[in-house]
Computed example of a mutant assay.
Amino acid sequence: MAGLTMALELARRDRPCIVVERAPRLEEVGAGLQLSPNALRVLARLGDLNDLKARGTVAETVTLHAARTGRPIASVPVSSADGTPYLSIHRADLQSWLARTAAASSRIDLRLGRDIGVVARDGGDLRVEAISPDGTEILQTTLVIAADGVNSPTAQRLGLEGPAATGALAWRGRVTGGPMPAGGIEAWLGPRRHAVAYPIAGGRETNLVLIEPASGSVDPADLPARFSKWDRRLGAMIAAVGAFTAWPLKAVPGARPWRHLGDRLILIGDAAHAMLPYAAQGAAMAIEDAAVLANHLDRAADLSNALRAYETERRPRIDKVRSRVGFHRFVYHLPFPLSLGRNAVLASRSAASLAGDLAWLYDWRPPKD
C-alpha cells in the first residue's frame, strides 16, 4: 500500500518511477483495515474515491462496549469536520484499487516477481539488484524508497535493529453470512484483551480481530473458551468465523533512522515506523508518508534537503500517534474495578468532546500542490 500510494503521488507530479514487488501477482492477502479521513484525503487525489467507498463501508462512529455485558460505553464519532468519511475495507480491495489506478498511469512501471538484492552507491546514484527467476536485472536510480513492511528486508540489509515483539497477538478472522456488527465499527474492552469488529467487502462480511497477550495458547480452537464470559453477540461472531489466523504484533523501534546511503534511500510506512494497531493508523500513516514525501521531493532543491525536510515534518506526527497508541493500549485493557472508572468517564462525555480528542489526527490534510 505504501509503495503503490507513493508511486501514484509521484506520477501525479509527472515523476516516473519503478515499483519492484516480490509477489509474482497481486492477490488477496491480509484482512480488514480502517481508513480514517486523514488517509482518504490523500486517496481522493489519486483515483475514484466513490469506487473505493463502494468496495468498503462508511462508518460514522466507533462504539465501545463493556466486555462481559456488551453494554455500550461510548460512541466516538470518526467522520471529520469537513465531511470526509471513515472507511472500513478489506486490505485486498484497497490494494486492487491502488494497483488498477497505478496500471492506468504511463509514469508507473510495476515489476512483479522480483526481490531486491544489493543496493549500493554508484557515483551519485544507486545501483539496485532486482532478482527474478529469470536472472538479475540492474537498475540505476537516484533514490530508493523502501516501503517493504514491518519485516523490511531493506532494513535488515542496512543492519538496523529489527522489529520487536510487543507481547500482543492478534487473531484475525472473517464472518460471512453470520452475525454482523450492529453498525459501524465496534470494540469490546476487557482486562488484557479487546476485540474489534467492522464490515468489509461492501458490508457483506465482517472483519473480526481479537487481541490478547502473546503468552496464551496459539491453538485457535481455544479462543471461544477465553472469550466465553464476554458479550454473547461477540461470542456468536467468534463461533461464526471459519478460520482464525494468528498475527504476532511487532513494532519498529521509535528511533530507527529513516535516511540512508547518503540520502539516496529512505524508509517509509511500516518499514520506518510500524506500531501496534490500537489507533487503527498503520495504513493511514503510510499513505500520509507518501503524500508528504512526494511534496518535499517536488519542492526541495536537492534530495538531502527533501529527505531532511520530510523527516522533520513526519517524525513529530508519528511520535504523537505512537503516544496515542500507548494510551489506548493502557485504557482498553484496564482490569476491574479500574475499568468502571474508565467507563464512567467515557459515558459522561459528549460526542463532540470525544470527537475533539482525535481532531488533530483525523483533520490532517495533505500538502497543497
Rank of each mutant, 00 (worst) to 15 (best):
A2S: 15
G3N: 07
T5K: 01
A7D: 08
E9K: 05
A11T: 06
R12M: 07
D14I: 01
P16M: 04
C17K: 05
V19I: 04
E21T: 09
R25H: 10
E28Q: 12
V29N: 13
L40S: 03
V42Q: 01
A44D: 03
A44E: 13
R45D: 13
L46K: 01
N50G: 13
R55W: 03
T57C: 13
L64M: 05
H65M: 08
T69L: 08
S75K: 14
S88E: 07
H90K: 01
R91V: 08
D93F: 04
L94M: 11
Q95R: 14
A99T: 03
R100G: 13
A102N: 08
A104P: 09
S106V: 15
R107C: 04
R107N: 08
I108A: 06
D115L: 14
I116R: 10
V118R: 15
V119L: 01
R127W: 03
G135D: 06
I138V: 13
L143C: 10
V144H: 02
A147W: 00
A147R: 00
D148L: 03
G149R: 05
N151H: 15
S152Y: 11
P153V: 02
R172Q: 02
R172G: 04
T176D: 12
G177D: 05
A182D: 08
I185S: 06
I185E: 04
I185F: 08
H194M: 10
V196E: 00
Y198H: 11
G203A: 02
E205T: 04
N207K: 05
L208H: 03
P213C: 02
A214S: 14
S215H: 01
G216D: 14
D219K: 01
L223P: 04
A225Q: 15
K229A: 15
K229P: 04
K229L: 15
D231M: 11
A236S: 14
M237Y: 04
M237P: 02
I238E: 01
V241Q: 00
W247N: 07
K250T: 07
K250M: 07
A251D: 06
A251N: 09
A255S: 14
P257I: 09
H260Y: 05
L261F: 03
L261M: 11
L261P: 10
L265A: 03
L265K: 08
L267A: 02
I268Y: 00
A274M: 00
L276N: 01
A290F: 00
L293T: 12
L293I: 14
A294W: 09
N295A: 15
D302I: 08
L303K: 07
R308L: 12
E311S: 00
R317N: 09
D319C: 00
R322S: 09
S323T: 13
R324T: 07
G326C: 10
Y332P: 03
H333L: 02
H333G: 02
P337Q: 14
L338W: 14
A347P: 00
S348G: 15
A351H: 08
A352E: 15
S353P: 10
G356V: 02
D357Y: 01
A359P: 00
D363Q: 13
P366R: 04
K368N: 10
